[in-house]
């Protein structure tokens, strides 16, 4: 059987891809926006501001929160993907329960998942970067819990939205990461204060903001979640 040569075939595949891209602009637009999101997140996590010196104590908070933000995107997208494949969200929607309860349940599950991740991630980051926490473990747990709650409150809502349109991590990070910039700033600033040996009192307004952010989106999501699930 006569077939086209290697380079000819490669060219045809490339041309098909580029034509598709030219017509829809989907992949390019999505990846450009995602690249800008990465720049934004890195800037607030490790560039400039109070964390300018690259000592371990200054670097760890940024790296830690980068890891938490990106892995929470992956985790939430995965959990929603499971629901999507089995079309189980539609089943939950038809169940005789409050729609807010579906949101709250998914929020709790996502929060537990992130908490387990942090239990592994935080000691690893401290060991790998040779940073010292100086015994402020309880304070660190409090900061992690507060900021992770906000991340899950918004992430669960956006995760459900993204799963309804059938897109994965790229769209979820485009929505969630820029929108949660305030949480990232609060998390990095508060964690940084702990690693520097300052108490939580010095960053109290950041903690207040993280709590306010979490509550704001918790109630926005409670009020709007049923519209996401609706057929």
């Amino acid at each position: 059987m006569k077939t086209v040569g290697f380079w000819r075939a490669a060219w045809l595949v490339a041309r098909k891809d580029l034509q598709l891209e030219w017509r829809t602009f989907d992949a390019l637009a999505a990846s450009v926006v995602f690249a800008v999101v990465v720049l934004l997140v890195f800037q607030f996590a490790v560039g400039g501001g109070p964390a300018r010196q690259l000592s371990a104590d200054a670097l760890v908070p940024g790296v830690l929160w980068l890891a938490i933000s990106f892995s929470s995107v992956v985790g939430i997208a995965r959990s929603m993907d499971v629901e999507r494949r089995g079309d189980t969200l539609a089943g939950l929607f038809r169940a005789p329960i409050d729609r807010g309860a579906i949101y709250a349940g998914k929020l709790i599950a996502n929060a537990v998942r992130i908490a387990l991740l942090e239990v592994i991630l935080v000691p690893l980051a401290i060991v790998f970067f040779n940073a010292s926490l100086g015994g402020a473990w309880l304070e660190l747990i409090f900061v992690l819990a507060l900021c992770s709650f906000g991340l899950c409150a918004l992430g669960t809502l956006f995760g459900a939205i993204v799963s309804r349109v059938g897109r994965g991590e790229a769209l979820l990070s485009t929505l969630l990461l820029p929108a949660s910039t305030p949480l990232l700033l609060a998390g990095v600033t508060a964690t940084g204060a702990l690693f520097r040996g300052d108490g939580l009192a010095s960053v109290s307004r950041w903690l207040g903001m993280a709590a306010g952010f979490g509550l704001l989106y918790f109630f926005v999501a409670l009020a709007t979640f049923e519209y996401v699930l609706e057929e």
């Binding site: 926006v33 349109v165 059938g166 897109r167 485009t174 929505l175 519209y227 996401v228 609706e230």
Partner: peptide
Amino acid sequence: ILLIAALMVRRYAGNRDLGARLAAIIGIT
């Protein structure tokens, strides 16, 4: 970025009503 994401959600949503609802939630946030 969020406006672009809202337009993407609108476009990716298979049907009009779903896109409208999801875009409205994103609009509020």
